[in-house]
Amino acid sequence: MTELHDATNVTNPEHAEHHIVTPRTYIFVFITLLIFTGLTVVAAYIDLGIFNPVVALAIASFKAVVVLLFFMHVKYQSRLIKLTVASGFFTFLVLTTLSLSDYISRAWGLW
């Protein structure tokens, strides 16, 4: 099959090797996620004022990134996949920012 695969005919010849993530890594990730779940509960019972939701979201985002990188193998994928994933979250942030700026500039009394 390799003689059919003309390397010059492929825009992006970099198809990631099939990387097999080991159970060791999965166990490590699993324990990390459980620890941070505990942390987020503990943090919620401490009065941090305005930083409570910030800490909660930071921990949730950290857990999400760990899941994305290791459970979902994004760390081991080609640049095409990495860019696809990043563009999705980036677009979500753009839409949120645009919608928020709309809401914030309308209902003055409520914010």
């Binding site: 099959m1 059919l4 695969h5 492929v10 198809h15 990631a16 090797e17 099939h18 994928q77 080609s78 095409l80 996949i81 696809t84 994933v85 563009s87 999705g88 979250f89 677009t91 979500f92 839409l95 949120t96």
Partner: peptide, 27 residues
């Protein structure tokens, strides 16, 4: 597909496109 790696990446890419619509849906 030229190679197994190409097919695998195409599949992963398609799955992620679906998941992006899910991000927007839950978003």
């Amino acid at each position: 597909f030229a190679t197994e790696e190409q097919q695998r990446e195409a599949g992963t890419f398609g799955m992620w496109l679906f998941l992006l619509t899910e991000i927007m849906f839950f978003g």
